[in-house]
Amino acid sequence: MPEETKEFWRWSEKVWRDESIDWRGSRAITAGIDVGSVSSQAVILADGRLYAYHSTRTGSNSPDSARKALNGAMAGADMSQEDIRYVVGTGYGRVNVPFANRAITEIACHARGANYMVGPSVKTILDMGGQDCKVIRCDEKGKVQNFIMNDKCAAGTGRGMEVIADALGVPIEDIGRRSFEIDEEPPPVSNVCTVFAKSEATGLLKAGWSVNRVLASYCAAMAERVSSLIERMSVEPDFFITGGIAKNEGVVRRIERIIGIEAVRLPADTVLDPQIAGALGAALFAHALLKKEQKASAQA
């Protein structure tokens, strides 16, 4: 039995900063903050270049989570909020980012962030967040052309994966790898609902399945559920996955198997993280909006 106190769902929070940039020398510092239901990210750009980011767990209060994410990204850089010229909030808590100059939907932000990460070739984006899942089609500039979203339920989301990690006592970051350590691919768990899938998983363990086999079965069910959403929109490559689940190969490779298209992987040495795509897109919007504002005031 897993120990009561161990939190198997907990993923590692991340801070990154480009030490080669001296932000004081740049003219425009902008930030994007993505307050999701499960995780919050802040990205800081210096003259439109990625400077720093931080990813953290969302607390019970959106404004606090937004502040926590931004403070994390600024930490160690001797930067304060006043140094940031324009802030765009996104994510489900976007309207609750008190210091944001503007709120933009996560759909537009994920498309723009993916466009920055992959380049103009990215056409279809699957955003697998903590609370929901969306498929977005965009043009070569990262502008949204078409999107599809579903009423919110934990099946096929990061939160659903956290629940299973906890129920089976497997650290969430090991799930993808362990789901391939099996002799033969099992059928997906039959229940879509996370609550029912959890009891089904317990039943499968009692029936003698190994933990890895149950994980494979759950990852397969999640991939199946998400693929039905993807297949409603014809997938045009390049196909890219954003959000926390993008880091779970157990789900990603099973999605690729079902839809028959490979997702773009970021290079192994990248500093980028698919989980920050929304905040990155928001920061890019902030940079563009700041430039627009500056141009307008120069003309006035």
């Binding site: 019970s60 919110k152 996370t194």
Partner: peptide, 14 residues
Amino acid sequence: NAQCTVFAESEVVS
């Protein structure tokens, strides 16, 4: 607001 049991649990906690 939450329509899903898993999310409603967090809503009740808050």
